[in-house]
Amino acid sequence: MTTTIAPPAPPTASGSPHGAAASPVPPTTPSTAAPKIAALLGKVVRIFARIIVSILLVLVFAGPFYWMVLTAFQTASEALSIPPQFWVDAVRWDNFIAAFDRVNFGHFALNSVIVTGGTLLGQFLIIVPAAYAFARFQFKGRDVLFGVVLATMMIPGQLIFLPVFAMYAKMGLLNTHLSLILPFIASGFGIFLLRQTFMRVPDSLIEAARLDHASEFTIIRRIMLPLAKPTIVTIGLITFIGTWNNYFFPLVWTTTDAARTLPVAVPRLEALDEIAPTIVMAGNMLLVVPILIVFLLARRHIISAFTYTGVK
């Protein structure tokens, strides 16, 4: 084994006075070959360890999703079998049909679309002008007001659900889509990110537009927004994923199903499964699959959107 990977014979150290050429010393002394073999072995071990860790990572992070999909297509007895079955014999849609039978998913999915779409749209209507003003105008109190905007980012939203609920109850806003949209359209985070982008737009572009008597609206639409496209996409993706997945607010700010969204509806299926969570997992897929598809399509963009917020 060692001979096959041993390097060509190194010149032997021949300080001996007795003719070095006739020396019976083998061409590869252990003292020079061993480190190379060790290095090679080390490399093999490292690559091997890397492969093992990689497989483990895939199992840890993708495994639970696989288990959800598997259970969603199994019968209760398959899901309960010991030892567990890691495959299904036939694709059955029974669990999905059962889930749709018991819970009106169409209604909740529509609510999810309305609330998510409304939040996305409303957010840009609100934060674009605000970010533009903070980035491009000198006015009294600007820094203080911007400080207030930043401070709201530090307030965990879940701390204010109780007073807001009481407020909604008094205003008759409970169980409306609007109640689930309004608090989230003035995102301090979005204003902050957009302002940074707007500040980087060269003054000369705006001066030129003003000379042409362009209105502020035109400046925003024709100069600012096209240049801020990556930031807009970043904010949009984060808002979309956050709103679609939100469970807490649609749960606590509603008392009827009128405006409730998918994340509130899916856990209800738990009550239907008596022995194995096959129907829950089928319903769960309705919540997971749309987001997973978006993630697969825009993976790089989503990852950079989320990680960007962490570096500077």
């Binding site: 992070f61 639970p64 469970y247 997992m281 997973l292």
Partner: peptide, 16 residues
């Protein structure tokens, strides 16, 4: 792969 759980609703993750 390791980022994927982050885009999934915590409710879904909890149910799984």
């Amino acid at each position: 792969v390791s980022f994927a759980p982050n885009v999934i609703a915590l409710v879904s993750v909890s149910l799984i």
